[in-house]
Design a protein around this nucleic acid. Structure first.
Lengths: 172, 172
DNA sequence: GGAAAACATTTTAGGCTTAAAACAATTTGG
DNA sequence: CCAAATTGTTTTAAGCCTAAAATGTTTTCC
């Protein structure tokens, strides 16, 4: 039979991970910095889009998706690509159809599906905005060298893969 | 007097930046990847907070700010730290006071100012959530080596500085 | 001292966002 | 074939978020 002191030691050692949890302060700081960068840039782009073109960022993002898909996309496609909820897309599309930027029609092969496309107006306006938008992004990242950009791309790819794995683990 | 062909060449050369704009596709891709990473992680954290603690991410973020400030913060401080609008904070605080997590009082030295603090309940609940939250973040970044983390920190610091400079340029 | 500027917060109006439930159409498997 | 599961979208209820205007307070500076 172990002595009392042994029991205490065993307990301490067994529960160590709980009592003195590992230090993940670095990862936490990294996450906060990542979030700060994104929030900063996103806010800047949002403001410039509003001031310059009187358009919201979500509308711009949706149009950007459609610009890459001349044959149109389904609402589900858009929702997955933009990583937003289905209901969100429904509302966004509604307003963009209303303003004449989007064309929405029910698929002829599957009546559940709505296919949306940019209208001529929508495409023209998007192209005009996209050109300036690209210049803004270039300016926001202007202090990064090409090497910095490559390195960030690599590390963010790794981050994305890591996060996706973690997300998959959390819902089997 | 220059020949016609010279005029054309001059025109081409002078308008080159407009006609064949510089290629900033790399920066654009970087921005999209940055945004994807953040959205992915943010969505994951949001979902886990909701499922595990029935709390929203903005509430958690606000409580995190206050946990670091035992003497409380003004609404403006919070608004700047969280990089959200003033009105947004007003609403968030209202709901957290309502639920008993926050204490709000008018400053005695400046009657414009509202000072908010975590209540005992608020602090206890936050600490409980924060412990798990830190583990989630560690897991989401699990595939990054310590060197990756350091390098990302460095590059994101550079990115933040670059974006802040660009933002300052755009509103003198 | 008092008008004007600056500041902190709230209000307003509109849009964005989500999760969950509801609905509609298609596919699947007995 | 047809009931059950799946898929695509919309609806609902609640909360988040912003920009701009409004309100109340303090500071500045003639």
């Amino acid at each position: 039979m172990p002595a009392v002191s042994d029991c205490i030691n065993m307990l301490d050692s067994e529960t160590k991970a709980v009592e003195t949890p590992e230090d993940h302060a670095e990862e936490l700081r990294l996450w906060l910095r990542l979030l700060t960068c994104t929030t900063l840039i996103e806010g800047e782009v949002r403001g410039r889009l509003r001031q310059r073109f009187d358009v919201t960022l979500p509308r711009f993002d949706l149009m950007a998706q459609l610009d890459k898909a001349p044959d149109g996309m389904t609402l589900s496609d858009v929702s997955k690509r933009m990583m937003v909820s289905n209901g969100n897309v429904t509302g966004l599309v509604e307003r963009l159809v209303e303003s004449g930027h989007l064309d929405r029609r029910t698929s002829e092969t599957d009546r559940r599906v709505q296919v949306i496309r940019l209208t001529k107006l929508g495409r023209a306006e998007f192209r005009r905005m996209a050109a300036e938008h690209e210049a803004w992004i270039a300016d926001l990242f202007a202090d990064l060298t090409p090497k910095d950009v490559r390195e960030l791309m690599r590390l963010l790819a790794k981050t994305k893969a890591s996060a996706q794995k973690s997300a998959a683990r959390s819902r089997p």
